[in-house]
Design a protein around this nucleic acid. Structure first.
Length: 571
RNA sequence: GCAUCAUUAGCUCAAUUGGAUAGAGUCGCGCACUACGAAUGCGAAGGUUGGGGGUUCGAGUCCCUCAUGGUGCACCA
């Protein structure tokens, strides 16, 4: 496919000797309003080097570019050079490219196979998997897919919260009041019940806390009974998590959680001591980060036991040794900002230059209308319930609309789950939001179902055209002059832009950039669909238009796949 | 108190990282189903980009300051 920006930059370079090619390339813009051209070049910055008024520079560049086969028209407006690409050439190029690449359209190799780790979801064992967990889970999944698509070698890790003093409490509670059958029937709700009961009883009975600490100590030392119980809790919890992951179509390369690093901590602590970073303070062993504007990081408690950050230090080292990562990405809430700042700083102080490759992809808080979520106060919405509700709601709509299908369950699943995921990936990660049922279940406007509907519409047109024509549209030479109308051309431009959008979404760890672009493509198609009749009598025209429909279909399908969303052929 | 993130149309959010007249969706209003799917499209309306300074050819974007809100501030994870 022609790289227009590059081609234009080379043409401009002939006119502007004072700037580097790369700089010129970065200055080329695509105007917000199509009336001002496909590409624009602002000349303000040239005024100083060229010692001429910007509009005059723009004029001379415009004159020089005019007549080049690449352009249909070149205009000077004030300090801007507005360039209009030759439409037929452009549309032919885009459609051909998409049809050739098919399922691979949108992929690239900017990563050159470099290894990247994405840690995401990472729920705590024996705690409910609620709507707040959707963020890390869905954003992380998408970042994985995007990095894979732009040529990195990704490793997907679920860093389970399966370690810490809380498990001492859990084991004690189970031994006092537990029942095996209840745990098997409903693991998380039951275990959570034990956990809250422990806290209630411990308020009046401090002996329980002592017992919990001792129990955890035995667990750390590999005590047989404790280990067995802990493993059982872990397995049962994981079964519940997996149910949700299956619904979302998510899988992992590794479930190495916190406990995995328990035997790797002593070495790191030793290393910190050797490098004289560890100091004693108020009974604990800490790393003093005050010179760097951070609060001190405790590494060992007064009783010598370890902490969350101790494990994360061991974890980062292990990952570097095991995967030799180019980037180690943590998709974790912004609340843990300080933790990751400390982690990076300590790695840096230890002399690891790759500390800079630790990336904290943070996101805002999800709350409920009643306030922030609190499992103890029963103020919580379970993710599984949201997914099930969305699927059920979709099923009703499908019935209502009388969609002719014999796999209503599959479609309801694709659309219902897709709606929830798309909604999550629509906004900037950093924004806080309040979960509202009617918003998740609203399928009009800029939503997942809207984009999926557009896909189904493409599929429908191609079905109506018949297999033979659809095949021709996917392979034959097309008469591009039939698809250069404003709406067809705008649609082609949006499809052309998608691979670059995917790279940008990856570089910024921001799937919403892709989500929004898919809405643009869907809007572009629906406008085209309304403006023009596709299945006309003239066969050449029909095939040309169908090829654009086919290209749109691929773009939407491939794009949604990177968000972790499937597409229905009808809905 | 310190740190940090946010604040853009009634509501939910964009804005090519300093560029042209700040754009979408939604709510409400007015239209369009006897063409290929109305989970759609079109039109009108809606703005002192939280306030105030500054930097420059040019600021929603960068700097300072104030206000409001979220989050975090050593032995939880």
């Amino acid at each position: 496919m022609i790289n227009f920006v590059k081609e234009i930059a080379e043409l401009l370079k002939e006119q502007i000797a004072d700037l580097e090619l790369q700089e010129i390339e970065s200055m080329i813009e695509t105007p917000q309003d199509a009336k001002m051209g496909d590409y624009a070049f602002p000349c303000f910055r040239l005024a100083k080097v060229m010692r001429k008024a910007p509009p005059l520079i723009a004029k001379s560049i415009t004159d020089a570019l005019e007549g080049n086969h690449l352009f249909e028209k070149v205009e000077q407006v004030n300090a801007y050079v507005n360039m209009f690409i030759s439409k037929e050439e452009f549309v032919t190029d885009v459609v051909k490219e998409v049809l050739e690449k098919g399922a691979d359209y949108g992929k690239s190799n900017v990563g050159e196979g470099k290894p990247v780790i994405v840690e995401f979801s990472s729920p705590n064992i024996a705690k409910p998997f609620h709507i707040g967990h959707i963020r890390s889970t869905v954003i992380g999944n998408s970042i994985n897919k995007i990095y894979d698509a732009i040529g990195y070698k990704v490793t997907r890790i679920n860093h389970l919260g399966d370690y810490g003093t809380q498990f001492g409490k859990m084991i004690v509670a189970y031994k006092h009041w537990g029942n095996e059958a209840d745990v098997v029937a409903e693991p998380i709700k039951t275990l959570l019940g034990y956990y809250t009961r422990f806290h209630e009883e411990a308020d009046n009975n401090p002996a329980l806390d002592v017992e919990a600490r001792e129990t955890f100590a035995r667990l750390e030392q590999g005590g047989e009974e404790e280990t067995k119980l802990w493993q059982w809790f872990r397995e049962e919890s994981l079964k519940e998590f997996t149910r949700v992951y299956d619904m979302l179509g998510i899988s992992y390369d590794s479930y190495a959680g916190e406990s995995f690093y328990s035997d790797k901590m002593p070495a790191v602590v030793e290393e910190l001591k050797e490098k004289k970073l560890l100091v004693k303070s108020k009974g604990a062993e800490i790393v003093d980060l005050e010179p760097y504007g951070l609060t001190p990081a405790p590494i060992l408690k007064s009783d010598g036991s370890t902490l969350y950050i101790t494990r994360d230090l061991a974890c980062a080292k292990y990952r570097k040794e095991t995967y030799d990562f180019y980037k180690n990405i943590y998709v974790v809430a912004s609340q843990q900002n300080l933790h990751f700042q400390q982690l990076k700083k300590i790695m840096e102080l230890m002399g690891y230059e790759w500390a800079k490759d630790i990336v904290h992809v943070q996101f805002g808080l999800v709350s409920l209308e009643a306030g922030t979520m609190s499992t103890r106060q029963g103020r919580v919405v379970f993710l599984e319930d949201v997914l099930n509700q969305a699927v059920a709601h979709t099923k009703e709509i499908i019935k209502e609309k009388g969609v002719a299908t014999d796999n209503i369950d599959e479609i309801a699943h694709q659309v219902g789950i897709g709606a929830v995921v798309f909604n999550e990936l629509s906004n900037n990660r950093i924004k806080d939001y309040v979960f509202k049922w009617d918003k998740v279940l609203d399928f009009n406007g800029e939503t997942g179902p809207y984009v999926q509907y557009t896909y189904a519409r493409c599929a429908s047109v191609l079905r109506n055209a018949g297999e033979e024509l659809a095949k021709k549209a996917a392979s034959a030479e097309i008469k591009a002059s039939y698809i250069t109308s404003p709406s067809a051309y705008e649609l082609a431009k949006l499809i052309y832009k998608m691979p670059a959008v995917i790279v940008e979404a990856g570089e910024k760890y921001e799937p919403s950039i892709l989500t929004r672009h898919l809405v643009d493509i869907a809007q572009g198609f629906n406008r085209f669909y309304h403006d023009e009749h596709i299945l006309v009598d003239n066969e050449e025209e029909k095939i040309a238009k169908l090829s654009l429909v086919t290209a749109t279909k691929y773009a939407i399908k491939n794009g949604l796949a990177l968000l972790g969303i499937e597409v229905p052929e009808r809905m």
